[in-house]
Simulated assay, not measured.
Amino acid sequence: MRRLAAISLSVLAAACVPSSVETADSGRMQKKAEVVQPIATPAPAPAPTPTPDPTPTGPSTFVYDGKLTQGGWIRGQVPAGTVSARLGEQELILDESGRFFAAFDRDAGPTTALVARRADGRELRSPLTVSPREWDIERVNIARRTGGASEAFMRIRRPELARIVAARAEETGASGWSQDFIWPATGRISGRFGSQRIYRGEPGSYHSGIDIAPGAGVPFVSPADGVVVLAADDEFSLEGKLIIVDHGQGLNSAFLHASRIVVEEGQRVKQGQLLGNIGSSGRATGPHLHWSLKWRDARLDPLLFTGPMS
């Protein structure tokens, strides 16, 4: 019994030994400490060095040339750092170099301004003086016809006008606006831009283009590079066979009364490329080419783009 008690006491003593491991060192009992490895914390990534904004290049103010007169035009470059620009209240289209085209209506007022807006919101203004012109005015002592067009005619005319408006609104990215224009045909000038009749004090519509009358069947060409946005081989009631060419930046040419059209809509044309042949289609008293130019809603004088006919 004593032996069994001793064995039981030994087992009980063993069960009470701590779970940590003990070792002898210089006659003393010491506990071996557990070694805990520290967790490495990654260093934060260095903040990127900010790239300075590039210094804008270009002129410090507007640079331009052109014909600053009624029915004329202006072409130039905006100041460095410009984000948008306008002529008066009309927004300008800027190319990748900051170049622009703008123009002045036949009845434009005497003053306007080019305005550039920069990224910080500041505006730079360049005042412009638009010189007046003396138009060929004929005063007649008869009353102007009243009543307007009939509804039957307008049912035909409205879809034609819608096609013209849509064509002139197209932005094709053409670059003909930057060229020196050439005459689409040469010959006798039978009608000048801006001429007008006054009926007993009431003004009638003015002539919106220039008429060139070299004879029936004479070919005519594009005065500058562009894209054909309308080629109406089906005759319009007034214009007859009509071609409109977009020269970019809101500038376009219209050619009326053709006898034949040799281009189609969407076609890119180069300066001097054949467009068609002169005729008397539509409402015309004889064979001639009516050439008109528009920038947005402004009517322009083609003679100010080409200079005198040689």
Rank of each mutant, 00 (worst) to 15 (best):
R2E: 13
I7Y: 12
P18T: 07
S19I: 09
S19M: 02
G27R: 05
A33G: 08
V35Y: 12
V36F: 10
P38T: 10
P38A: 14
P38V: 11
T41I: 15
A43E: 13
A43Q: 12
P44D: 04
P44K: 05
A45V: 15
A47Y: 08
P52D: 06
D53K: 13
T57H: 09
G58P: 03
P59F: 00
F62A: 09
Y64I: 03
L68H: 03
R75S: 14
Q77H: 07
V78W: 02
P79T: 05
P79M: 05
A85S: 13
L87S: 13
E89S: 15
I93Q: 15
I93F: 13
I93M: 14
D95E: 10
D95S: 07
E96D: 15
F100Y: 15
F100C: 04
F100A: 02
A103N: 07
A103Y: 07
F104Q: 02
D105Q: 06
A108M: 02
G109L: 12
T111V: 14
T112A: 07
V115A: 07
A116S: 14
L124F: 12
R125V: 11
P127S: 10
L128W: 05
T129I: 14
R133C: 03
R139E: 14
I142L: 11
A143T: 10
R145H: 11
R145T: 14
R145G: 15
S150C: 09
E151P: 01
M154H: 01
R158W: 11
R158T: 15
P159Y: 04
R168V: 02
E171K: 15
D180V: 13
F181I: 03
F181R: 03
W183Q: 02
W183M: 04
R192W: 11
G194R: 02
Q196I: 05
I198A: 03
I198P: 00
Y199V: 00
G209P: 08
I212K: 03
P214C: 00
A216D: 13
A216I: 08
G217P: 01
V218E: 12
V221K: 03
S222W: 01
D225A: 13
D225K: 01
D225P: 08
G226D: 02
G226I: 06
V227S: 08
V229H: 11
L230A: 08
A232E: 12
D233I: 09
E235V: 11
S237T: 13
L238K: 08
L238W: 09
K241M: 11
I244G: 08
I244D: 05
D246F: 09
H247R: 01
Q249N: 12
L251K: 08
L251E: 10
L251W: 04
S253W: 06
S253N: 02
F255L: 07
L256K: 04
L256E: 03
H257V: 00
H257Y: 03
V262A: 12
V263N: 03
R268G: 09
G272H: 07
G272E: 07
Q273W: 06
I278H: 04
G279S: 10
R283M: 12
T285P: 01
P287G: 02
H288R: 01
L289D: 09
H290I: 06
W295E: 06
A298I: 03
L303T: 12
F305L: 11
T306I: 00
M309H: 06
